[in-house]
């Protein structure tokens, strides 16, 4: 039973990290219908930025709490800046281009960013400083749930609540929902669509950066390639839940994380990714628009 609970929490932690990245995919897709392949790289850059800032601060002897806060802020700020710039350079000129052109541009951007970090930093795995301490009150259950799992769960829950608030109750959130529904109509009622799209990229990137910081301090090492597989997994999760739907992305991520955790725990760890993708194929066969996606009826 302990093993089951342990696997459950591993899956939950993993799923909530996927969710932080998947939200960026699903928000961007919901608004401009683009699979943003560079999003995984944004997450990687977030992890790298927080790594660099945290290590520099710890070398200069700052207290742990200050390091965590500053590294988190720096990761969010710089990842958002990258997201904003990428949208402006690589996607905005292609708004009216054929459907596949922005996709290729995104793949190019992803290759570019990977190699940019590879060249500017290193190709080795870097040891990520342990930013989350072991809490004393977690001692009795430490063999089942680690402190970092707890922190990750709490932080992601808070972030999700914040995001829900932002989308449901603020002006920009309203504008985002309107743009996702109908871009032309949104323009007609006076929404600056370009600014909404930029905001979407900024918010999505900040979420990915927080995910990057959390997972990096959880796993303990990073390199330039981590964004690729995390990106594909998160995108899978977003599609699983029904792409374009924000609760769907969270649900899909949790389902994916739990499936992976149980499958590796009870069956075999070699085929971890195979389980993830098989789950995706199975769900899409029976529910072609994902778990929470709306089945679109096509009008002629």
């Amino acid at each position: 039973m302990d093993y089951f609970i342990e696997l459950f929490f591993v899956g939950l932690t993993r799923g909530s990290i996927y969710a932080l990245i998947a939200l960026g995919y699903t928000m961007v897709y919901g608004i401009i219908g683009l699979i943003n392949f560079a999003h995984g790289e944004i997450y990687m850059i977030g992890a790298f930025t927080s790594f660099i800032v945290a290590t520099v601060l710890s070398i200069y002897g700052f207290p742990l709490l200050a390091i965590v806060i500053v590294a988190g802020l720096a990761a969010a700020v710089w990842s958002s800046a990258y997201g904003y710039t990428i949208e402006k350079l690589a996607y905005r000129p292609l708004r009216k281009a054929p459907r596949l052109a922005p996709l290729i541009s995104a793949i190019g951007m992803s290759i570019f960013l990977q190699n940019y970090v590879l060249l500017a930093q290193t190709s080795d795995f870097l040891p990520f400083p342990e930013l989350i301490p072991e809490f004393d009150f977690m001692e009795p259950v430490a063999h089942i749930v680690g402190s970092s799992d707890l922190v990750i769960l709490i932080v992601t829950t808070l972030v999700m609540l914040g995001l829900t608030f932002l989308i449901k109750f603020t002006k920009i959130g309203k504008a985002m929902r309107a743009t996702a529904q109908d871009k032309t109509m949104a323009v007609l009622v006076g929404i600056n669509v370009d600014r909404v799209i930029s905001a979407t990229f900024v918010i999505g990137s900040a979420l990915a950066a927080i995910g990057g910081l959390l997972i990096a301090s959880h796993v303990g090492q990073i390199n330039f390639y981590i964004g690729f597989i995390a990106g594909i997994k998160a995108f899978t999760a977003a599609v699983l839940g029904g792409i374009g739907s924000i609760p769907g992305a969270v649900l899909g991520s949790l389902v994916l994380g739990l499936t992976e955790s149980f499958a590796t725990g009870y069956i075999s760890s070699d085929y971890e990714d195979v389980f993830a993708f098989s789950l995706l194929v199975l769900i899409l066969i029976f529910k072609p628009s994902g778990l929470l996606g709306k089945a679109e009826t096509q009008k002629v």
């Binding site: 897709y29 699979i35 594909i232 990714d273 195979v274 993708f277 995706l280």
Partner: peptide
């Protein structure tokens, strides 16, 4: 199984399928 999926769903399933083959 996958051809009744539309556009981007097809894309991600084929991507997953490619990865499955490689991982196997």
């Amino acid at each position: 199984p996958v051809l009744r999926l539309r556009g981007d769903y097809l894309a991600i399933v084929t991507l997953g399928f490619g990865e499955i083959i490689r991982l196997v």
